[in-house]
Design a protein around this nucleic acid. Structure first.
Lengths: 172, 172
DNA sequence: CTTGGAAAGTCAACAAGGCTGACATAAACT
DNA sequence: AGTTTATGTCAGCCTTGTTGACTTTCCAAG
């Protein structure tokens, strides 16, 4: 973990090359293109089911933490309950998600993927993992470590912590 | 450059740790959160002008290559001309973008930022660069190199080349 | 010089997925 | 008993994407 490259004795210009406006701008653009490209394949699959990216996100996080409460999911996704409810209702009606009344708090609904929900999740995550794995193995372990380090630094620490605690452990 | 660690004779789990499903999944999620977090600040600024992310993208790429033709912009953004035309018309009407008839081919429109367009571009890119620079300098040069390597590997080579040639040189 | 087709603009209609506001219900908490 | 919380739902709005159809402009080939 780099603490302060600015204090090193190496020539200033060389050391800060990665922080020039041009380098930064390239990073921003690459992030834009990579993100768009990365989501395009799942988007195409979802069309066959008449679903969109919003459904994908719900399916992903319900699979990620089975038994997730609606409130937690709202917090993770950062959308309104009305917006979430629309896609969630479809997924429940279509039998991809099972919404069970909470055992301890009966106001809550705990969300689980059904068998067909799990199947779609697998179909979607397979293509994304395949693609990410291809990029990872082309780039190599050190690059992947750097990739993760920069992404981590890009996320607001407060947000990152909240997400971590929401997605941590205790399934069911 | 890693070629194919899967074909190596070392079934060493350590070597492939960065390619486990769990590692991949973490990368996917971090990309999601980082991208969303990264775009949230410009989005808030744009609200003050009653613009959205679509306007931001247009402003960005017109600034990136002044004199860009509408067709080129369509190719970069990957949306329909009707969709682009809506936001483009607003920006032209509001005097942020100057649409000049092409000198060599008078069917084409070459797009330029006006003074106020440049001002908004600066306002938007300042916050993004600031944020990206913060992440970059916290992560360090090696991490940044890795970040860029992975992103590069994530983008379809064909797409990457097309974008490169569209955005290259010859301004005006 | 005419005509085919490319580039651009526009109108209409629609869909996904955001948003707000208002309201209902059940359960938990105090 | 009364308040708060978790969830669901209805209605309506906005942005930004889509398709289809049509026009105008204008380059370039026959």
């Amino acid at each position: 973990m780099h603490t302060s490259p600015l204090t090193r004795s190496t020539p200033r210009s060389e050391q800060l090359l990665f922080l020039t406006d041009d380098q930064i701008r390239q990073g921003i653009e690459m992030l834009f293109f990579a993100y768009r490209d990365f989501t395009s394949h799942p988007d195409k699959i979802l069309e066959n089911y008449d679903y969109g990216r919003a459904h994908h996100r719900v399916i992903h996080f319900v699979n990620r933490k089975p038994g997730l409460a609606v409130n937690e999911l709202l917090d993770i996704l950062g959308v309104t309950k009305q917006s979430l409810n629309r896609v969630l209702r479809q997924l429940v009606n279509d039998g991809l998600i099972d919404s069970r009344i909470g055992k301890t708090d009966r106001r809550q609904r705990n969300l689980f993927l059904t068998e067909s929900g799990t199947a779609l999740e697998k179909e979607l995550s397979d293509v994304q993992r395949k693609r990410m794995r291809r990029a990872y193995s082309a780039a190599g372990p050190e690059a992947v470590q750097g990739f993760r380090t920069v992404l981590e630094a890009m996320i607001e620490p407060e947000l990152a912590n909240r997400m971590r605690s929401l997605l941590r452990g205790e399934p069911e």
